[in-house]
Design a protein around this nucleic acid. Structure first.
Lengths: 185, 185
DNA sequence: GGATTGCGTTCCATGATGCAACTAGGTAAG
DNA sequence: CTTACCTAGTTGCATCATGGAACGCAATCC
């Protein structure tokens, strides 16, 4: 569907979703992390159509999440490997994994589990505040202007002032509502 | 496109993607986290089509990530609020945010930043291993069968790639069991 | 009464998706 | 030499989701 592009959105989440906001792309990265690197393997493990797979791989290479490595010439054949950026993206997958485990396999019947390569100890991905090390509670967060806020006047116009204005109204009108209304991004 | 459903996939990531693997759903959750709760507000802020928005909201309510709260009768009107599950899902968004900040606003020009509601201190979402508290390095991970893995409980110590390789042949022989491919997860 | 708000639903074109069949370079077997 | 097979795609087609605009509908405001 001529999906909308979020390339120009002033939001880190939207920008990340521009590549990862898809059903197949994250799964391809997952397979790559788990050690699958060849076209046919991707296709068989995921059950994805070959044409779709072609496009997704090209996109991921384009976006710098995967790189092609020739593993033979004459028939030239490539493997797809995670780049630095790609590895970084998979950590977002780990957050999804934690969510999925909690809500879809809550009985502990997790089919797949992560282990440390060196120690074989089970690993449990968790989100914390990097500043304090405390577990992250999203309910305690609000979004405010970042460093580039003054430098991006279009943000001010399109979203942030609108938000600030609206926030003022809410503060006046809705004292009783649960106060999770803080900010937009 | 009649997207494939991952409902029955034995993988936490795939299950999570079944709801969140979409361009709009995560953004709707984001807005909700940031304090937007009404139909028109979602529509204006995201620029999403009204029909799509309707479907997404219904899906999110269905999946238990959002709940409808009537804020007036006669015209009956609802607000959409995050449930416990919904809040949990947004932490996956925080991981996406960290990724986006690092790779698309690396110069520090982050337009939006998260703060603690109580202390106003900047918050920096980061993934760690909940067991050790160490920053999570996905390169050090391997995936192995969890408690409910469909078979072969003794393989646990083996590298999962080897396991995949072995299982790949099996999968090829068995036609029609595509969903039982407990391969990657 | 007429206009506006809030929340959808319906209609339609476009195009992404899923599936199957086909191409293409090369190796291995008979 | 011929046939089969392997890996990695590409092409063609039917179908369904998407995006955009127009319409519906209840109620309030002026």
């Amino acid at each position: 569907m001529q999906r909308k592009s979020f390339q120009s959105a002033p939001c880190s989440i939207a920008r990340a979703l521009d590549v990862l906001g898809d059903w197949w792309t994250p799964l391809i990265l997952r397979e790559c992390l788990y050690g699958v690197h060849r076209f046919d393997q991707f296709q068989r493990w995921l059950g994805i159509g070959r044409n779709i797979l072609t496009r997704r791989l090209a996109l991921l290479v384009d976006e710098g999440l995967l790189e092609k490595r020739a593993y033979q010439t004459r028939p030239l054949r490539h493997e797809y490997h995670l780049t630095e950026k790609g590895y970084d993206a998979t950590s977002a997958l780990m957050a999804l994994l934690a969510f999925g485990e909690r809500w879809y396999f809550a009985d502990g019947g997790v089919p797949i589990r992560l282990y440390d390569r060196a120690t074989d100890a089970p690993v449990r991905p968790q989100l914390v505040d990097g500043e304090t090390g405390e577990p992250l509670d999203v309910r305690r967060l609000y979004a405010g202007p970042g460093p580039a806020f003054p430098a991006h006047p279009e943000i001010r116009r399109a979203r942030f002032t609108e938000f600030l204005a609206r926030r003022g109204d809410d503060a006046l009108q809705a004292p009783g509502v649960d106060d999770e209304r803080a900010s937009a991004s």
